[in-house]
Design a protein around this nucleic acid. Structure first.
Length: 470
RNA sequence: GUAGGUAUAGCUCAGCUGGUUAGAGCGUCGGAUUGUGAUUCCGAAGGUCGUGGGUUCGAGCCCCAUUACUUACCCCA
């Protein structure tokens, strides 16, 4: 019988004690900020019915869903047996008969489902945050996993742009609290993008245009030009696109320039929608931020080329990039005017965003921004000298724990060297020594493993001393 | 789904144009006046070189297949 090497599925990871502690550190900061801004926690099941998930993320998204094979005799389920015709018609035809559940792909759709199912009980506007893993059957690569945790905060039931402004504030506060300073909160508006498309006079496909211009910083002007030509956009239209994309200046200056350009192209007729609405919304968000006294406008970047996640966003769009680190966006979001519509509840506007914890983790690790105490280890290790010491050590250990101090006794009698190495490797700050010498004098020795210094304290005062040090 | 790259000790990797018993660092374990780590020194264990075929007198190295991992594209946190 051959022993097989154990492994874990592609794109998944184990998290050791240090990683868990560091991840909890990130979760803690995010949770604190979310709650400070008035969001309430929500958790939804790991699996959803496929009817809830499919069709919400586009064809590509459907392919990235993890489907759960039905339990029992899945070839002969309640929807009838899988026939030769089903198989001949391909997986798409066979799937509904063998799988009715899937792993959640993001947190926004389950949230929408929750809102619809509980519409009678919810007080609107409803603000919820959700920190849970999601799964995508993607090809893993740098900063991209098949199982990762999202931290979402969404508001439904209000059109107020105050929400958008607060999203900027939350992103800035979370990232600043994590020690990040050099990042850009990119903001754009679906209306601005569609205005650019309208200005072209209806050539090409809108989505092709957005996908191409989103890559500007990656493949450059030549690359975008090439891609647009391949998609059937005439050179004249492409020139016009770049005229828009190259708009520069401050937030306000960009708004002003774009307004006059859209005016010249005649795309501002409908003041309640399209580019007019987009520019107005962005101006309002900026005004809110100013009124808030937002101090980091240099981090807020009105980026006309930002065009991500357009499958359901209808208003403002956000994305956050950490500069000087090779990593995709660590946060993104936007407003969606009709997310609950597909579940039979039209007219509910929502806006939300999400932090990608796994990417933030990688960034913090790259930049060495984790605090040293973001590890979980007991405060103190009691050295185990000999059996004679145990009658005194165990009550002491208990006393430390009752005082709320984490402590442990090295479980077996062994060489001190080994016990010190153990404490060092686990990051235990203090080592408590009570061998025959100390016992004879009624004292214990406390060694600070970080400083390398030792002090002798009366046995009766150990708890108080350690409490003072902790 | 498309295109590359890699696969040798627990980990990170050497291994020259194919040539005897496949190496290093780190880690693990043991020892150096039997009460002191992070920071000394010595020693040991640990590999059928991803798997299966082929070429050859001879393969870790060349060829084919296969699997896994990885990077990039599409798309996305």
């Amino acid at each position: 019988m051959s022993v097989q090497k154990p492994s874990i599925p592609q794109g998944t990871r184990d998290f050791g004690p240090v990683q868990v502690a560091r991840r909890n550190y990130i979760f803690g900061i995010i949770r604190r900020v979310f709650e400070k801004f008035g969001f309430a926690p929500l958790e939804t099941p790991t699996m959803e019915n496929l009817s809830v998930l499919t069709g919400k993320y586009g064809d590509e998204g459907d392919q990235l869903l993890f489907k759960i094979l039905n339990s029992g005799d899945f070839l002969n389920g309640k929807k009838g047996p899988v026939t030769a015709e089903d198989l001949a018609a391909g997986s798409k035809a066979t799937l509904p008969k063998v799988a009715e559940k899937g792993l959640r792909y993001d947190l926004t759709v389950p949230f929408a489902r929750y809102v619809v199912m509980n519409r009678g009980q919810l007080t609107l506007p409803f603000k919820r945050y959700q920190i849970q893993p999601v799964w995508r059957a993607d090809r893993p690569q740098r900063g991209r996993y098949r199982e990762f945790v999202q931290c979402d905060a969404d508001v439904v039931g209000t059109n107020s742009l105050l929400c958008e402004a607060e999203i900027v504030l939350m992103i800035d506060e979370v990232l600043t609290s994590l020690g990040l300073t050099d990042f850009s909160i990119k903001i754009n508006h679906r209306g601005v993008l569609s205005g650019i498309y309208q200005a072209l006079g209806g050539v090409g496909r809108e989505s092709d245009l957005f996908v191409a211009i989103d890559k500007l910083d990656k493949i450059g002007q030549d690359g975008v030009t090439k891609e647009l030509l391949e998609r059937g956009f005439p050179q004249a239209a492409i020139d016009k696109v770049f005229a828009y994309l190259q708009v520069g200046g401050s937030f306000a200056e960009k708004l002003e320039t774009l307004r006059s350009m859209f005016g010249a192209d005649g795309t501002l007729q409908d003041a309640a929608a399209g580019p007019a609405k987009g520019l107005q919304d962005l101006a309002e968000v900026q005004q809110y931020l100013q009124d808030f006294g937002f101090e980091h406008f240099e981090r807020l970047d009105f980026d006309v080329t930002l065009a991500r996640g357009l499958s359901y966003y209808t208003g403002c769009i956000f994305e956050v990039k950490v500069n000087n680190v090779q990593m995709g966006s660590i946060s993104g979001g936007g407003r969606y005017d009709n997310l609950t519509g597909s579940f039979g509840l039209p007219g509910l506007s929502g806006v939300g965003f999400s932090f990608g914890v796994d990417r933030i983790y990688d960034v913090l690790e790259t930049l060495e921004l984790f605090p040293a105490d973001a590890v979980s280890a007991p405060l103190c290790l009691l050295a185990n000298f000999d059996a004679e010491g145990r009658p005194a050590l165990l009550p002491l250990l208990r006393g430390l724990r009752e005082a709320g101090l984490s402590a442990e006794l090295y479980p077996e009698v062994s060489k001190l060297r080994k016990q010190f190495e153990y404490a060092d490797k686990r990051g235990i700050r203090y080592m408590l020594l009570a061998g025959s010498e100390e016992r004879a004098q009624g004292v214990v020795k406390l060694r600070d493993m970080r400083a390398g210094s030792e002090q002798t304290v009366p046995a009766a005062e150990v708890v108080a001393t350690l409490q003072g040090l902790a």
